[in-house]
Design a protein around this nucleic acid. Structure first.
Lengths: 345, 345
DNA sequence: TTGAAAGCGTTACCAG
DNA sequence: CTGGTAACGCTTTCAA
């Protein structure tokens, strides 16, 4: 069990004071060349490194950034984390990661822990069931910079990096309608701070604009798990007539929904079209390839982390709160491209 | 900027000493009921919580566990992380996460940082290019428990939780040969500490046992990225005759390989069969569904974290080093089930 | 039953 | 140029 070398060890060995050693190592203050050289040599050979805990205690800085994401097992969030990690690493920060599993209580606990552990900044993707936003205010109250990522809370004066889901959904809906689809179903989560909520908004807005009746029975609220989506798909098949397209706000669920239809002997997209969200890698490999919205998760993570670190470094007050909205791309694939003759039926 | 309340604050308010407050709060030592009550009340209302940094400095304990994984964007590793996180959370530990991106230098840096930050334990999936194992010995030298996960280094006396990839690959190969496949190609990474290396071993062993000639040209070394796998697939199509089956040691790559074949007008599995590894969710949705090996990532993460925390708590010496090997399942799907009449050609 | 002091590893300030 | 001291927040030992 090799002991860590401390300033004191070096000082003792060289018969000088701890303060001199400290100054010598940091190249500050007045230290004779001779002493400085000797100190540095010894420090080098003893592999001295300052103790982060002691430094943290003293300076109130830890080099940690607390990250709270909803779910570890989600490709899209993984790309976001990847982006955050790259930037954090470049800037010498370490990531403290916690997962809320989309439950506010877990998030609250993680926030408390991170604040208490003196994280220098917090990056949060708010849990989907968030209603009480005081927990976020408390963070600012403690003087810790906060940035929202992927999900914004507009009424809060907190910087955020998100993607333009409203616009994406709008494009998607307009595209589908342009194709000729009219009975368009929606499977989505509707929680207030979710992607799905915004998609729902765009969905209704576009229908209204295009003067297509909004049918309640075509809108299904789910939690975007495979099982509830499968159930939702089965439900849609009970309707007469069945929808001619189904918009699902998650690729995995869309894939599962598509499979339900195919197992029932329907052709996608000739009998019923399906779309997803996120453009996960598999979407171009399934059959038929999935029309979806490609979102820049990696870039979002990077931008958000840059914003957070910038805020930390300037120790800016949260007053100037930038909301960065990244563009997404509509990716059109065969799951919506119906053969012309099938439009006649 | 609300200041954190410290023992000193409480002591000052109550006109008693810091040590008394400390004892009162922790229910140790002799403190009068009266004092204890008053202290606890005030601590409660001021939301006092001990400072983790100060405690860490004093006790050499931080409540952090350092985790080093190869890649944030990998479904399988995400499930492993999920398992680790659940167990860590239950036990009051926080995760410090770093990604090596499968490069030893990054791993080395992360180890140094974590050791220096007084992580109480380290959980590492060794970078694929690891050759120098001294970095791991150093960790033990610092008295910090270490557990390997997903990739073991057998020559080291370090606890590990892995899956039985040799056996899985053996089953897979025997299954394929049992089906009638004879020209079985292999696309895999061959780095020493990789899953692929072990698969390669099983591949050759089974061929030998079944007295099937080992053909060098059927073995392709790749890094399991989509692009190199696509290249590998194209290469295999140059051979005459082409292989009748291709074993790929990663689902994503297998999916890409399959697509190459299909785009060339070949039928999978009638012209050429394909198998993957990991049983990622999409594998049952692509066309044809992929034969693959289902590995218990979540369970592995949990077991590994349990092992690590147990070791931390007992502050066991690394002498009794348990190597836990979890079983995997062969999942047979249509990508290998060839119509009988196609065997006659 | 309580308090003072030392110590964990570091930096900052002030004398010398 | 150098050293001592206080401080960060806490626990522990010893003395009162």
């Amino acid at each position: 069990m090799s002991k860590r070398t401390s300033l004191k060890d070096i000082a003792k060995e060289l018969n000088i004071s701890v303060s001199t050693v400290s100054r010598a190592l940091r190249n500050v203050g007045e230290v004779s060349e001779e002493t400085r050289r000797k100190v540095k040599e010894l420090a080098e050979s003893w592999k001295y490194k300052p103790d982060p805990l002691a430094l943290g205690l003293l300076k109130n800085k830890t080099g940690y950034i607390g990250v709270i994401l909803p779910d570890p097992v989600n490709h899209y969030f993984s790309t976001v984390l990847h982006g955050m990690n790259i930037v954090a690493q470049e800037n010498g920060y370490h990531l403290l990661i916690s997962y809320s599993y989309d439950q506010s209580v877990n998030e609250q606990k993680a926030i408390d822990d991170f604040v208490w552990a003196r994280a220098e900044g917090l990056m949060i993707c708010p849990a989907i069931d968030t209603i009480d936003i005081r927990k976020y205010q408390q963070i600012g109250g403690n003087g810790i910079p906060l940035v929202f990522v992927e999900r914004d809370i507009p009424e809060m004066d907190v910087p955020a990096v998100i993607t333009d889901n409203y616009k994406s959904m709008q494009s998607l809906m307009e595209f589908l309608i342009g194709c000729g689809y009219r009975r368009i179903a929606l499977i989505t989560n509707l929680e207030y701070y979710s992607v799905g909520r915004i998609c729902y908004q765009a969905y209704t807005d576009v229908l209204k604009k295009k003067r297509i009746a909004l049918r309640k029975e075509l809108i299904i609220h789910g939690n975007m798990s495979i099982s509830t989506s499968v159930e939702a798909a089965r439900h849609l098949l009970q309707l007469t007539p069945i929808p001619d397209a189904v918009v699902v706000t998650d690729d995995c669920s869309a894939m599962a929904v598509m499979k339900v239809f195919q197992e029932e002997g329907l052709s996608v997209p000739d009998d019923i079209a399906v779309t997803g969200f996120n453009d996960e890698p598999f979407t171009s490999y399934i059959s038929p390839p999935l029309t979806t919205v490609s979102r820049p998760g990696y870039l979002m993570g990077m931008k958000a982390m840059e914003l957070l670190i910038e805020t930390i470094k300037k120790s800016k007050s949260t007053t100037d709160c930038e909301k960065i909205i990244l563009e997404s791309d509509l990716v059109i694939r065969n799951s919506t491209i119906r053969s012309p003759e099938r439009w006649t039926r």
